[in-house]
Amino acid sequence: MEVVAIDQISPDQVILFAWGFVTINATLAYTWLIMGLLVVGSIAITGNLSSERTMSRWQNMLEVIVGTIRSEIHDIAHEGSDTYFPFIATLFLFILFSNVFTFIPGYVAPTSSLTTTAALAILVFIAVPMYGIAKNGILEYLKEYFRPTFIFFPFHVMGEFSRTLALAVRLFGNLMSHEKVIAILLAVTPLFFPVVMQVLGLLIGLIQAYIFAILAMVYIASATQTHEETEHKPKKETEPVKI
């Protein structure tokens, strides 16, 4: 039995429970599953953390993941990276685990739902000005929309929306299309080839998680650092010409 039929383009359409406007669909169910796994796994592993030289393998794995994300964020943001770290790391881990479990039969990634990716993109859309304002103040942040001249304001606004839309659609499109491709291939060539595609799907899932997190970080970094760069840019002084 397939959870998502080939004609159902999103797990949103698999309604598990509906009462009035309250609709519990597969997207929410799998989101909770992933959340539960992440939280329970974190609690289980971090329950007895060791700050000694020796540690458990699970702790070592978590430290590698967290350390890698931290260093990646630091490479982009340079300063204040720990401020953005929880947000970016949560996006990355959620998308990664959502995508990775697609090799389990019957599982559908919540990220293959436009609702989920839109929610993620909206969070980024809100987070970027929040971090920018928190860092530079609302006036300075808003001034960025009028740089270099006020003519650029509409382009800045359009850019904000378009990149949010792009974030949502890119992730959704990649994951959704992958699942559809797998479904189609299973119907056409049920042996061997779908396995290769599953492996490719894992890679795509990892890359998409990385791209989403990195782009979110880049947007946040651009909102917090652009102003600093313009402010600290040394003014060119004109030297008097001796005749």
Binding site: M35, L38, V39, S42, I43, T46, L49, S50, S51, M55, Q59, L62, E63, V66, G67, R70, D82, F85, P86, A89, T90, L93
Partner: peptide, 14 residues
């Protein structure tokens, strides 16, 4: 939840 149960603890331990 992750901030509470994962990042804080792991970063603290590291």
């Amino acid at each position: 939840l992750l901030k509470k149960f994962l990042y804080g603890r792991i970063i603290g331990a590291m």
